[in-house]
Structure formats: structure tokens, C-alpha cells
Design a binder for these strands. Structure first.
Lengths: 311, 311
DNA sequence: TCACGTATGAAAGATATTTTCGGCTCGGTG
DNA sequence: CACCGAGCCGAAAATATCTTTCATACGTGA
């Protein structure tokens, strides 16, 4: 373990050269190379150059590989690593990998452009993921927690909960319903406008009606909400247009975010993501408030499903 | 250079297990650990846990060091590295260094705590949004674009597309179907297992069957996929367990990420987010490939809906 | 309880890294 | 112009690290 450091101390730069930065440089490698270049010998410069020029590529090479690439020897590579402040090549290589990763991730946020017809599939994945993350952040930032709290409070003690949504929003309505049912509440999703209205008539004070519509102007969803509203139920609207028609009949409005859309990226995609986050928040809020009954109910439904899984 | 990879292929997961991601994961390591954890042995889990928990720390250790730290042997460490998709420990270590560097540059993962019963509603929103963003990032990082590309190619030219999913995954199946229908493809979601099987019998070469199941072991979904597979259809599995039973009958496996769950945050929540992203990518990919017909179809369906919106 | 298959770690074997050591070049000097 | 010395350089030995093999222990189902 006791290393013989004789040689390094005999280098032209003097005793100081090797340890300019006591902690081996993290990312300032290119700078270090430039700084130390004058005190390097020709072969070492070649190595340093290669390393600074293509960190990722060099990280993939062994000492021998890098030595061959630069037309030098293993010993020179190791000496260069030492000069740059690392105990040996192994550690330089590790730092190189880190640097490469940073450069890689730093390049990432360049994806502000829209999805094009000829984008490679990997770009599609990156862009969609990025956009949906953005949508989530926007939604969380724009969500009115007071309104949400009120909606949660009403839902937690409701006799029954009706959820209206058609098209893509219909799936969100079903998602919410499924989860509420799982914690023992009485919830029902309606995507048939006629049945929705027919059912809305049954609602009364203490019940909760939730309408989900991105546009805020979907008649099929507004109508049952209006009926529920007029029958005294607590009404909630989850919409991207808080000033839309649906808001007239809503006691509480939860706003979803609206992202730019395009031909290949229909609005339904980001509105759905946004709606689901709101619905999740609503659900978790209710689950908190009804924890006494919710916890065992969740456990029970989990149990019930276990046997449907194959070994 | 020709490695003897006999042992890795003898793992319980079968031939598929080791190559979940052909390109060794760069940043999707934590996600990959969670995904593969179930198929790991106890000792391997200890290693994987250490690696996922402290990438920077582990990157500084040699095989022997990590083996000692986790109370296992070098062999186990190497085996774990292999399972995670790297040729050996050396490469895992490099990836670890990269990951550490990324974490370093990226801000501290502020919110790691779970959602508690008494969290104020604002915290719930923040935590859920953060978790779902994380899930999206993990999914995107872990998605095999080759498999995705293959699935897209098959779906784009399919005579018909059947999608199977029950429970929460059923909604995802419907979401995909809705969108595919919008661009003029023939797609059908099945959540009734009997009808699904009955329909699967009709499939033949050139058709595509897609099974969506988080657990990878939902019999109700595997069965129709098996039938479709045996009738010559191209089969795709979207699952969180790429080594699960569903994979046997899948030509292409698309892996969704698995996030930690808790009482108040059922697994269904993040798996749904993950599944939706995958499904969106699939959809956009198909839309690209069929752009000629998809664009007018999208416009037409948009038109058709316009009159259902109130002034 | 036994038999079987799997998981595991010790140690041998293979690679990669580090060190040693001697040749070589280059610039100065008699 | 020959000689000398300082320091650069790489081949190869020595060491550390990683990988593979193999025998054993363990758990599991019959």
C-alpha cells in the first residue's frame, strides 16, 4: 500500500505540480489540462489532449488502449494521470466517466422543439417524457390548494360521488372512480351523458359531483354537473379553462395545465397527464382524511387480487 | 474477447433476463434496480441496494471492497453487475461514477420522504408531482428503443391491433386504443378476459396484440396474449417485470418503471404514469410512420368533436 | 426426511494497472 | 566533433483488480 512516489516528485514542474487541486478535479478537467500542458512532455501532452478532447471515448479505453491510441506507452498514460492529480489511471478513468455523463445530461434540455415526423424514436421518447414532466410541474404549480382542500373535504364525507367525463377525460374519471372504490367510498363514473343526467337527479346535499373536461365547454359533461349543482350537491370541476362554461356550476374549480400541442402530439396527451395528477392529489387527500377505513380497504383489495397472478 | 456467458444465461429469468436493456443503462440505474430486484437473490439484492443507495460511494470501491461492504463475495458483485446489464463490475463502476456526477450537478433530490397521513395538502401535491416526474424520467431512461421501434413498425402496418389490460391497466389499454382509432387504425381494447381470448383466436400473422400488465403475471392478460402469439400475431408486452410470465409470449417487451409504493401511494399510480408514457411513445411512433393517413384522420376527428363544445 | 436444484463464496485464472529499469534523445561542453 | 549528463520514454516485470470455476451450504418441495 505504501506507494513509492519518487518519480512524480522528480518531474520538471517541481514538487507542487502533481497536487494543484488536493481533491482530484471533478469537472474542471479541460482547464487543468490547459494549465498543466506547459509542464508536460510531448507524449504526455498527446495523452492529455486525447483525454480532454473526448472524455467519453477515453473512459471506454484501458490504459493499454489509450496508450495505443496516443501512440505512447502505459507508463506515460499513468504519469499523465498522476500529473492531472489522480492517484492513477483507474481514478482518472472514473472521473472521465463522470465528466462524460455530465456533458451528456447537460446536452439534454435542448429538447424544446416539437416532435417532427422524421424524429428517431429515441428522440420521441425523450421529448414526450420531457413534455409530460413539464406538464406535471406546471400543474402542480398552478393547482389551487385551497380549492383542492375544499374538494377533498367534501369528497371525504360524501354519501356518494359521481364523476363525469367523456372521451379521454372519461378514462380519467374511471381512474378516479376505481381508486375511490378501493378505499371503500361509493363512486361512479359516467361517460354516457344521458345516464349521467338521469343519475345526477338523484344527488342531494352532501353528495359530490365531479366534472372533468379539458376544454371546459363539453356540453355532455356540463349538463349533468348543472343538474347536480341545482339539486344541492357539492360540485367540482377539473378543467383546463377555469373561466369556461363548466365553472358556472362548480363550487370548486381545479385547474389543469394546458401545454402546446401539435399534429403529432394531440392536446389530449398533456391534458390527460395533468388531469391524472389532479385526480391523484384528490384521491390521496381523501385517503388521508378517511385513513381509518381507507387503509384496511386498500389492504383488502390487494389481497383479493393476489390469486389472479400466476406463479 | 469471447466471453463465456454461460452462467448468466442459467439465471432463473431465462434467456431474456440479462438483456433487458441492450445498451447498458446510463442513468436509469435506480429504476433498473427496482425493476430487476424481484428476480434477484438475497445477496444480489444487498449489492443492488448499496449501489442504488450510494452510487458515489460504491464507485470508489473495488469489487472486493463492495463485496465486503455488503457482506458478500466478489462473485456475487460481478453477478449483480451482469444482471444490471453490464459486461462486468468494471463497467458498472464506470456507470456509477457517471451517475454520481449527474446527481452531483443536478440539485439535491429534495423530496424523498413518503406521503404521510398528516401531510398538508400542498405537500401532497408537491410529492406526487415529484414522484410522477421521477417515474417518467426513469421510464424514459429504461425504455429499450429498439424494442419500441420494432413494436411501432409492427403496429404501423398491422391489419388490426388488440390491446389487453385489466384493472388500472385496462384504462391504459383504452387510452391507447382511443388514440389509435383516431388515426384511422383498427384497434380494440379488451378488459373482459373471456372475450379477449375469444377475439385473440381471430388474430393471425400481420396482426398485433399488446398486453399491458404491471405485475407481468396477470393471468387474465397473459392468456389472450398467448393465444395471439400461437396464432402468429406479433405480440408486445408492456410490463414492469420484463422477466415475468407475460414475456414468454411477447415478441417485444417494453419495460415500465417500478417506483416504491406505500399505503397512501398505491403502486397503481406510478405504474399507470409509466405505462401511459410508453403507450404515448408507441402511439406517436405509429403516427409518424403512418403520417400520410394519420394527419387527415386526426384533423377529421377534431372537427367532428367541435360541435359538442358549448359556446 | 431425502433429493434436488439453486445460491454462495473461496480460490484459481485472466486482465488491467502500476512500477521498475535500462535505452535513448537532446543539449551543452571540452 | 566526441563526450557527458539530464531527463524522457517504453518494454516488461510486479502488483492489484477483476472474472471464472468449482465445491459447499442452503432452502424447498416431494
Amino acid at each position: 500500500m505504501t506507494q513509492d512516489v519518487k518519480e512524480i516528485f522528480a518531474l520538471p514542474g517541481g514538487p507542487q505540480a502533481g497536487r494543484a487541486g488536493a481533491p482530484p478535479a471533478p469537472a474542471a478537467l479541460a482547464a487543468k489540462v490547459r494549465t498543466l500542458a506547459p509542464s508536460m512532455t510531448r507524449s504526455m501532452q498527446r495523452v492529455a489532449e486525447a483525454v480532454a478532447g473526448d472524455p467519453a471515448g477515453c473512459a471506454a479505453l484501458t490504459v493499454t488502449g489509450l496508450a495505443e491510441l496516443t501512440g505512447t506507452s502505459e507508463a506515460t498514460v499513468v504519469r499523465t494521470a498522476r500529473l492531472l492529480g489522480y492517484p492513477g489511471y483507474r481514478d482518472l478513468r472514473l472521473a472521465l466517466a463522470g465528466l462524460a455523463a455530465q456533458q451528456q445530461s447537460g446536452r439534454a434540455p435542448a429538447i424544446t422543439t416539437d416532435i417532427a415526423v422524421d424524429d428517431p424514436i429515441a428522440d420521441v421518447v425523450a421529448k414526450l417524457a420531457y413534455d409530460e414532466q413539464q406538464t406535471l410541474a406546471d400543474t402542480a404549480a398552478g393547482l389551487d390548494t385551497v380549492q383542492l382542500g375544499a374538494a377533498v373535504a367534501a369528497a371525504a364525507v360524501a354519501r356518494r360521488i359521481d364523476v363525469y367525463g367523456v372521451g379521454a377525460s372519461g378514462l380519467v374519471a374511471q381512474d378516479l372512480t376505481q381508486k375511490l372504490l378501493r378505499i371503500g367510498l361509493i363512486a361512479q363514473a359516467h361517460s354516457d351523458p344521458h345516464l349521467a343526467v338521469t343519475n345526477a337527479v338523484q344527488l342531494r346535499a352532501g353528495d359530490v359531483a365531479i366534472a372533468i373536461t379539458h376544454s371546459g365547454s363539453t356540453g355532455d359533461v356540463i349538463e349533468p354537473l348543472r343538474v347536480a349543482f341545482e339539486h344541492g350537491a357539492t360540485t367540482v370541476a377539473i378543467t383546463g379553462r377555469p373561466d369556461g362554461a363548466v365553472a358556472q356550476y362548480a363550487d370548486h374549480v381545479l385547474t389543469t395545465s394546458t401545454a402546446r400541442e401539435s399534429e403529432l402530439r394531440p392536446a389530449a396527451m398533456s391534458s390527460r397527464t395533468s388531469q391524472l395528477l389532479v385526480v391523484d392529489c384528490l384521491f390521496v387527500g381523501v385517503a388521508q382524511k378517511t385513513y381509518e377505513t381507507a387503509a384496511p380497504a386498500l389492504a383488502a383489495s390487494y389481497e383479493a387480487l393476489a390469486h389472479r397472478h400466476r406463479r
